[in-house]
Design a protein around this nucleic acid. Sequence first.
DNA 1: GCTAAACCCTGACGTTACGTGAGAGTCAAG
DNA 2: CTTGACTCTCACGTAACGTCAGGGTTTAGC
Lengths: 240, 240
Amino acid sequence: MRVWRVGELAEATGLTVRTLHHYDAIGLLRPSARTASGYRLYGEADIERLQRIRSLRALGLSLEEIRECLGRPGGSLAEVIGLHIGRLREEIEQKTRLLGRLERMAARLEADGGVSAEEFLETLEAMTMVEKYFTAEQLERIRQQGERVGSARIKEVEAEWPVLIAEVKAEMEKGTDPLSEPVLALARRWKGLVEEFTGGDHGIAAGVRELYRNEPAAREWAGFDPAVWEYIGRAMRALG
Amino acid sequence: MRVWRVGELAEATGLTVRTLHHYDAIGLLRPSARTASGYRLYGEADIERLQRIRSLRALGLSLEEIRECLGRPGGSLAEVIGLHIGRLREEIEQKTRLLGRLERMAARLEADGGVSAEEFLETLEAMTMVEKYFTAEQLERIRQQGERVGSARIKEVEAEWPVLIAEVKAEMEKGTDPLSEPVLALARRWKGLVEEFTGGDHGIAAGVRELYRNEPAAREWAGFDPAVWEYIGRAMRALG
DNA sequence: GCTAAACCCTGACGTTACGTGAGAGTCAAG
DNA sequence: CTTGACTCTCACGTAACGTCAGGGTTTAGC
């Protein structure tokens, strides 16, 4: 029956002496013997237990969970493993979403040439702000919609909005009746752009309205004018 | 110029008062003013900074990294983001591998009916042990090979090995010449099984030999007999 | 038998991003 | 003047060890 001292065991397993001390301290793996002078002595049973600990650790379980599994094996283990699988899935999913966002931002950062840190941070804030107003499904739909229409078309639309708003404003300032044909035509274009973005989803449209109501920064960015909004709103309602 | 007290700011942003205290303590976000009695007063510039902190935090950056980004913006930000993307990728990849392993184990645990915790832990140890003897690429190839032949065939092979070993042992004990046709036939079957597993990869075969050399547990599990090994080895060398 | 190197021991603090009190001061309303 | 809501500053706890510090133990070489 060979025995090992901490250093030997540490070297054999690739762990550190400190780690073995720690496992001892928290009662996860106590050496089955000590020398008269207090040196830890690990026996073969200890090594076996350490193997299991290492295996479970490699699965990402916490030391506490490992203690539970080894303490009362049986149902406990399967249960803990199931739980852990769930946690892992969720974590992976979340990090993957995050990575996607980061990569898209990095791509845009390079595509637009030297985007300044200022702009980057602003985009970042915009994304954070926007995400408060939509559910996860809505955000996903928005993303899919964006992919479907393509980035070229998105740039077109981004350029088209200020033009359209200016045209509406011009009609408004000329005093044109919002229910007249020229303004109704503008309203149809307006509605088309909105639906192209929302994919016809009422929830998304509602989120956008909320966003504009609560976020002055968003209104400023969009060149939002309450008078124009009210004016085109009347024409839109006439469209039904 | 409105100012906010901690509680107000906390409620407005969804953070906790403690978090704001913490950001103050580590110098990440110091309120730009205090009342005579020491109450923190956050101004609009503070809020803007907090927005950025939240955005970067949502990307998974550490507070230390955030401080760096906001401290000297410019190259630093892109650099940190790039680094973070790399870390995320690696982490996701690793966790995905882990999840795959766990799911396969869980599946086997259910497929084999009531697999005991004992067996589960043994499989786990085996996996941990085995992984020391192969590189990541080799493990990947082994996995692919396993998928290619299918679990049914694997079970067949697992059942075939002891039979084959027993036949070899019988010939050996009868004193048959290892270079005689019956033993050469057995050697061909042996070689076939090995190549089915290794996919003809010499590195993998070498890893298996190393494993058997160093791990008594593996030898025991496989019913490894040095005499049989030597006997069939001679026949195999005769095959070329 | 002696000494130096290598090994071991037990504290105890540091790490991350806060959570969770404790004890005490501040402020507005009734 | 009290009461309740709000704020302040400590200060300890979290997970899994890393990293000293200060002091015994064992072993190899002389």
